[in-house]
């Protein structure tokens, strides 16, 4: 008698892949501003004891058109990405890249110093580094 597994190997590996993809996709904390996954630019946020670091993945944007503002503890990154229009007789086969105006908003922690901001654009990534207030740093107590 021929034995056929109910779950052949390839199905299992397929499920494994799906699970991995879902975990990657859901690795986010909920926020009142929603989860703008797929929004442009994609953003990563991190921090150290001295600063808050924001990375906006905005390739192909003219840095002069980027508008970065901090107001009332909220950081706004806005700008426009213009793409070369295809020629008249050209055929567009795949069209996935974002084009047009964009604006993204990030809530900042309370202890940031809005006067100690640095923004750099390199390799298509805008890095905004915001210092934390001195007194907030001093309040941190090391537990031994």
């Amino acid at each position: 008698m021929m034995y056929r597994s109910l779950f052949p190997r390839d199905v299992l590996s397929e499920l494994d892949r799906l699970q991995r993809e879902m975990q990657q996709g859901l690795h986010l904390s909920p926020s009142i501003r929603g989860i703008a996954r797929g929004g442009f630019p994609a953003m990563n946020v991190g921090g150290t004891a001295k600063s808050v670091e924001i990375y906006a993945f905005a390739p192909g944007v003219d840095p002069a058109t980027l508008d970065v503002q901090i107001e009332k503890g909220v950081l706004t990154v806005a700008g426009e990405r213009k793409l070369d229009p295809p020629g008249e007789k050209a055929t567009v086969h795949i069209d996935e890249r974002f084009a047009g105006r964009f604006r993204r908003v990030v809530t900042l922690p309370d202890d940031i110093d809005a006067n100690a901001v640095e923004a750099k654009y390199r390799d298509g990534v805008l890095r905004i580094s915001i210092g934390r207030k001195e007194d907030a740093q001093a309040r941190r107590i090391t537990i031994q």
Binding site: L28, A42, N44, V45, G47
Partner: peptide, 12 residues
Amino acid sequence: MPEGMESSHAEV
């Protein structure tokens, strides 16, 4: 990345 940076939100 600055030394000791901890990520709090990552879309990439």
